[in-house]
Design a binder for these strands. Structure first.
Lengths: 206, 206
DNA sequence: CCGCATAAGTTAGAGCGTCTAACATATATA
DNA sequence: TATATATGTTAGACGCTCTAACTTATGCGG
């Protein structure tokens, strides 16, 4: 059979890789209809299996969403690392590049972003997901430390990282929602991020 | 009958004010269990009516949530206006007070906040809700304009307001989630907001 | 290469939730 | 007082999640 194109539907009785197929179906549906409207049944239809099939691979609906979001977080972290790789180490440009990538992800994969950060934590509560988030924030903290010329993640590094994250996080939410982003008029995002990084990374430690 | 205490349950065949009772039940449940777990049935149980009763007052589940969130937005705007009323007009303190109130609301009424801003816009799409949001942002813009000594809401006012909002918005999300807020260590929120307001309102127009 | 344990599907159905239709009762007004 | 309307009720269709019991494919030891 043709392996070149990843398939969602199956050939015969067995699917091949239903777990991956369902994760992909979940991702598509979450992006198309939004996290709230996502249903396991629909993902099954997309994957071409019965509605009971997922439960051989996932504990429940939540577990399915968690698996998909973890995938997304890995993608986000990968993008972030790739984006600042070519830039000079220890420069604020690297930090703004991270922010830019974060915002782009929030816009491009809005459904995934909302699931991770929309305050669903109670629902989607899962140590694996939490770990994925910590790891991503760790990338930011490393860059912040480098900019400050510090070796380890001090309280000051953590504080500055958190402030940077807050701002970029808020921007992500507002920019990803057309109605809300319209309220700000035109914003030169790159300039804003550059200015932000320089300011937060050069001020006296608060 | 006793009118002093607003009731959720009814006395006889008719309820008295089921619409308000259901909105209150909705609010409680959304806060207790989270927006995702909210069900009309449970609100009915809380209000002591049959599961079909809400449909005499609301189009559907969404309409019920919208009504409840609009109530919340009115509360938020009221708090914001009240918080900056005693402060000297045109001072950045007024703007930080607005931000403080926004963050407090996000923490105190986290469920409502998530429904309005969690990116459910597609779902909860409703002109009344949008208007409530615009009106609240309008309060911010007025204060920003006053600080800048400008009469109307210019593009610069809008831009600065948007930046302030982004930051406070991001902080709200991170601080309202215990797991995420822990990542920032201890932050002196009031000092941060004060510094933010002064900076954004005194820099050269971008 | 066969037989069997197990992995990975299937169908059937319980149980809950949304929402509609048809009916019942209270309230308000002519 | 009669009646129209607003606001409740019950019954039930339909979709969703998830489990139980059954079926089919796969892979591995002899």
């Amino acid at each position: 059979m043709n392996v070149r194109e990843k398939k969602l539907a199956k050939d015969g009785y067995h699917h091949g890789d239903l777990r991956a197929g369902l994760i992909e179906a979940t991702r598509r549906l979450v992006e198309e209809k939004g996290p709230e409207k996502f249903s396991v049944s629909e993902a099954c239809r997309l994957a071409g299996v019965s509605t009971a099939a997922p439960y051989k691979h996932f504990k429940d609906k939540n577990d399915m969403l968690v698996a998909m979001v973890i995938d997304g977080m890995d993608r986000l972290r990968g993008n972030m690392i790739a984006a600042c790789a070519p830039l000079p180490p220890g420069s604020p440009d690297r930090v703004s590049a991270l922010g830019r990538e974060y915002i782009d992800f929030a816009i491009r994969e809005h459904g995934v972003f909302r699931l991770k950060f929309g305050g669903f934590t109670d629902e989607l509560d899962d140590p694996r997901l939490e770990a994925a988030g910590d790891e991503t924030f760790g990338v930011v903290l490393e860059e912040v430390a480098a900019c400050l010329g510090v070796r380890d993640v001090t309280a000051d590094v953590r504080r500055r990282g958190f402030i940077l994250w807050s701002f970029v996080h808020g921007l992500s939410f507002l920019l990803a929602d057309p109605k809300l982003s319209a309220m700000g008029g035109d914003v030169d995002l790159d300039a804003l991020l550059a200015e932000l990084a320089v300011r937060v990374l050069s001020d006296a430690p608060g």
